[in-house]
């Protein structure tokens, strides 16, 4: 029964990519294609592009990604907790409370260390 529902989702996973592919292919067939040197150039600020594209970016992005990762994993544990909470007693709430507080500690640390600052 459960698997039957997922067959529907699987069908969605097959159909969903086909929907955007169709107009793109149609576009390729219908539209003119006259590539030229300049047309295929990188569009940046009007002058010719300088340097390597895959350049280095700021470490700040990484810091956001790591805080996000930790909180995202936290969700893995909080979703079942939230679903089960209604049928459990108060000690289950305390378990979740401790769990969240331990993680908030990490957020507070990041805040105090300025890892949340965009500069």
């Amino acid at each position: 029964m459960e698997l039957g529902q997922w067959a529907f989702v699987a069908a969605f996973f097959v159909v969903a990519p086909l929907l955007p592919i169709a107009p793109i292919v149609l576009n390729r067939l219908l539209a003119p294609s006259r590539p030229s040197e300049t047309k295929l150039d990188v569009y940046e600020c009007g002058v010719e592009t300088v340097g390597d594209t895959w350049g280095q970016i700021k470490v700040q992005y990484y810091l956001y990604a790591i805080i996000f990762l930790v909180f995202d994993v936290e969700m893995v544990f909080l979703f079942p907790w939230a679903v089960a909470l209604g049928s459990l007693d108060f000690s289950a709430y305390l378990a979740g409370l401790v769990f969240v507080f331990l993680l908030v500690e990490g957020l507070v640390y990041a805040w105090r260390k300025g890892a949340l600052e965009w500069n």
């Binding site: 107009p23 793109i24 149609l26 576009n27 390729r28 219908l30 539209a31 003119p32 294609s33 006259r34 590539p35 047309k39 295929l40 150039d41 990188v42 569009y43």
Partner: peptide
């Protein structure tokens, strides 16, 4: 939009 060229830039 269907009539617009689909450009595949270099590199």
């Amino acid at each position: 939009l269907l009539g617009k060229e689909l450009i595949l830039p270099r590199n």
